[in-house]
Write a protein that binds this DNA or RNA. Structure first.
Lengths: 193, 193
DNA sequence: CGGCATGTGTCAACGTCGTTGACTCTCTCG
DNA sequence: CGAGAGAGTCAACGACGTTGACACATGCCG
């Protein structure tokens, strides 16, 4: 349709195409997981997948589209959210402070950098809704529960950006326990209290 | 030194060079003030200044260096900070909610986008220290005042990113007064209380 | 089974980007 | 006045995301 031989629709793929497509997606997931959006070039993804750069665009339409597919399953905050909401604040801060040297930091930095793209923003907003609001708000008593959770996500995002992107020494060099208490309790009061 | 005719050092400039340099800096300030980092090309700055693109690099070394010069005087949060610290939380949120359609939003978005560059990060951290920590911490009673202010900046940054970059409808469509109370008080408790 | 549409892959190229080097002109200072 | 340094022009570099033209291979349908 849009292209004489565009296999953008994954349904009519032949085995070879399926394999190539999978290789590209996996390469993208690997590279986008450990580098920021702009650090990863389409040519690098193609090289990692052992494929022509044109194939990346042909199979996914654009670098941005591939990026979106690469992150949608890797955004989880783990099982922290499932715990009791009464102690969620401290637990979620402790969780991310513990992940300081894991790839999660790079992934968050990549998201921040890519978030000026409309489709990425849309995906992030969707993620906020399903992973946070829909998961937490029902367990709260307040009638403005949804707004409270959304604001909590904003506050959490600010912390992650400081920790992983900005890396302000005032915070990265601070006593983790102190940060957990101060910021965790602040988060907590936003949703319950 | 680094270049046969590099006027990177502003001291030995002749009038013509001084004028060109000023035109470029002003064009940069204008464009970076209303567009994000990547949206503004060196060639566009040069065109806006009526100058050859090479002159931009010659006078400032790089696009990033010019960007840094363009923002360092425009990052202010106004006089909000000077008011009483006891009500700073709500006031600062109200201030930015009021600036929803001002260029401040675009500027913040540009900062977020550019913040993966090391020099920009350094400048932002410096800004956090002199404009926030040094301005607020001395007026607080707590002995962990500096950390509290740094965390407050993180929390504020999260809000600004949601408001200006991410634009999550859960927050942008919410009742501003409700947001001011919820998030403002949360900020407030982080520094006093 | 043959042919034709369609999937798959290769390659070169486009237009953009930030940046650099070679070259010329002009002004200033000794 | 002449030398050296500031100022400006222009073309080009290598990288980027993306596209088009083309060749080859495969699988369905008559």
């Amino acid at each position: 349709m849009s292209h004489p031989t565009a296999p953008l629709d994954a349904r009519h793929l032949r085995p070879a195409g399926r394999a190539t497509r999978a290789a590209i997606e996996e390469a993208g997931r690997r590279l986008f997981g450990s580098h920021t959006y702009e650090e990863v070039s389409v040519r690098a993804i193609a090289a990692e997948a052992g494929v022509d750069p044109a194939m990346v665009i042909r199979h996914f339409g654009s670098k941005e589209a591939l990026y979106l597919r690469s992150i949608d399953t890797s955004l989880g905050v783990g099982a922290v959210i499932d715990g009791p909401v009464e102690t969620l604040g401290r637990r979620i801060i402790a969780y991310f402070l513990d992940q300081r040297d894991s790839p999660i930091g790079k992934r968050h930095a990549g998201l921040v950098q890519a978030s000026y793209r409309q489709q990425v923003r849309a995906e992030l907003n969707r993620h906020t809704r399903v992973r946070f609001v829909d998961a937490i708000a029902p367990r709260l008593a307040a009638d403005d529960a949804e707004l409270r959770v959304a604001l909590m996500v904003a506050q959490l995002g600010g912390f992650l950006t400081m920790l992983f992107v900005q890396q302000d020494p005032l915070i990265t060099d601070a006593d983790p326990d102190q940060v957990i208490v101060l910021y965790g309790d602040s988060l907590q009061r936003l949703i319950t209290g």
